[in-house]
Design a protein around this nucleic acid. Structure first.
Length: 217
DNA sequence: ACATTAAGTGATT
DNA sequence: AATCACTTAATGT
């Protein structure tokens, strides 16, 4: 067993030990490889084909729905222990991605080549459960984001967005501009500025140029 | 000192 | 809640 394999096994056991059976872990270690991606880089864009599936070890990925040029909306974030279940289907039937995934915080992930995904579904019970669980989770997050759009006022959406972000960064101090927030929520910068001022006055956040401290979760 | 980028605001729809 | 048009403040070179 080479050093790369040892490292991979260690990393895997950190988040996935209780989930996968031994034989599957052996296969993941044999076939998967660890890679790191810098914050800001695009993992997958709409219309692209996926070649590998990431099992996220650390960091976060922002999942975005995007309309042809310009309009976009952040749906949810993926964190350690997550994988993008939607991308499994893309792999299995060789369909193109309907989402865009951008690295939010530098990530480290184990990448599994596409052809193994399907094979393991038939072969390992734990893998099946993993995929189904993951799907379930993504569905719930999707519904949450629909709820947000349908029922929440922009100020609530903004606060939720900020506290989600604080959770993911594990830091209540965010470095972000009003413009960037506006883009993620698909609203205008002016609106974000005004609502942030409200939240600031209500003591929910403390905001200065380029910085927002989230005080209320 | 000047240019650029971020943020604040009134008025209108 | 969006858009316009403009101001003010912070930051980089």
């Amino acid at each position: 067993m080479n050093t790369q394999e040892i490292i991979l096994r260690e990393k895997l056991s950190e988040y996935y030990t209780t989930v996968f059976e031994k034989e599957l872990i052996d296969e993941i270690v044999e076939i998967g490889f660890i890679d790191k991606l810098k914050s800001g880089s695009t993992m997958i864009d709409i219309g692209e084909n996926m070649t590998h599936i990431p099992l996220i070890l650390s960091g976060a990925v922002k999942i975005i729905r995007q309309e042809k040029e310009g309009d976009e909306l952040v749906l949810y974030f993926l964190e350690k222990g997550d994988t993008c279940a939607i991308s499994f289907i893309n792999c299995i039937n060789r369909k193109k991605s309907i989402f865009k995934g951008v690295v939010e915080n530098d990530i480290e992930a184990i990448f599994i080549p596409v052809d193994k995904i399907d094979e393991w579904l038939a072969k390992y019970k734990s893998w099946r459960h993993f995929i189904i669980d993951s799907y379930h989770f993504r569905l719930i997050e999707m519904v949450e984001s629909i709820d947000g759009l349908a029922f929440m006022k922009m100020n609530q959406r903004l606060l939720k967005y900020l506290s989600d972000k604080a959770k993911i960064n594990q830091d209540i101090n965010l470095e972000i501009t009003h413009q960037e927030i506006a883009k993620d929520l698909n609203t205008s910068r002016v609106v974000v500025t005004r609502l942030l001022k409200q939240l600031h006055n209500d003591g929910k956040v403390f905001s200065t140029r380029n910085k927002i401290k989230v005080l209320d979760f």
